[in-house]
């Protein structure tokens, strides 16, 4: 696969508490057929240990957009490892589990992490996962919507299991990243590396308008 085979490349990092379904969101996008129908659901996906990633290429208005999706371990003690990976992210998908109050209550803590470690230009999307378990819901849509509004985040509910809203999530995000990238090129005319960039990921700055 040629490295130049795309018009845009964006790095998206999935974050959120352990067991909210980050890896399944990623897998769900990867598989055309819902995980559920493939018999892959349940049993469960092993917890992510460290950092994992995948590439998904989507087409938006005839342009090839390469999404580099990074999946991180949710448990707190892995943050010393995962933090350095969201520093260079173009977008973060902050995920919680709608059937788990605790995963929602931890969101402010995650926002502090983002503030401290991510670029100040990062786009953050709030995702409430597991809507297939509606009868076990602990976090209402209204609460989440209010929270995301207050934090100025785009908000969406998904079911990785049934592939509900998953594609929409990534496509919407890709659209927003494209328009953001276009604006930046118009304003700056040059793509400069992100401030405070420690680990340089070679094609991080390739997401400019071609």
């Amino acid at each position: 696969m040629s490295m130049e085979d795309y018009d845009f490349l964006f790095k998206i990092v999935l974050i959120g508490n352990a067991g909210v379904g980050k890896t399944c969101l990623k897998e769900s996008l990867h598989n055309e057929i819902p995980l559920f129908f493939q018999g892959l659901f349940p049993p469960g996906q092993g917890a992510t240990i460290g950092v994992d990633f995948m590439i998904k290429t989507v087409e938006i208005n005839g342009e090839k957009v390469k999404l580099q999706i990074w999946d991180t371990a949710g448990q707190e003690r892995f943050r010393s490892i995962t933090q350095s990976y969201y520093r260079s992210a173009n977008a973060l998908i902050l995920t919680y589990d709608i059937t788990c109050e605790e995963s929602f209550r931890c969101l402010p803590e995650w926002l502090r992490e983002i503030e401290q470690y991510a670029s100040n230009k990062v786009i953050t999307v709030l995702v409430g996962n597991k809507i297939d378990l509606a009868d076990k819901r602990e976090v209402s849509q209204q609460r989440a919507a209010e929270f995301s509004e207050a934090q100025d985040m785009y908000y969406l509910e998904t079911s990785a299991k049934e592939s509900d809203n998953v594609e929409k999530l990534f496509l919407d995000l890709a659209c927003r990243l494209i328009s953001e990238a276009r604006q930046n090129t118009l304003v700056n005319n040059v793509s400069s590396p992100l401030p405070g960039e420690g680990k340089s990921i070679s094609y991080l700055t390739c997401c400019n308008f071609n």
Partner: peptide
């Protein structure tokens, strides 16, 4: 306990012992 419980069903889910 909360984290452990979330992990119980995802260890070797195809092994008869943990299925």
């Amino acid at each position: 306990l909360d984290v452990i419980e979330r992990d119980l069903h995802r260890q070797f889910p195809f092994h008869e012992m943990f299925v």
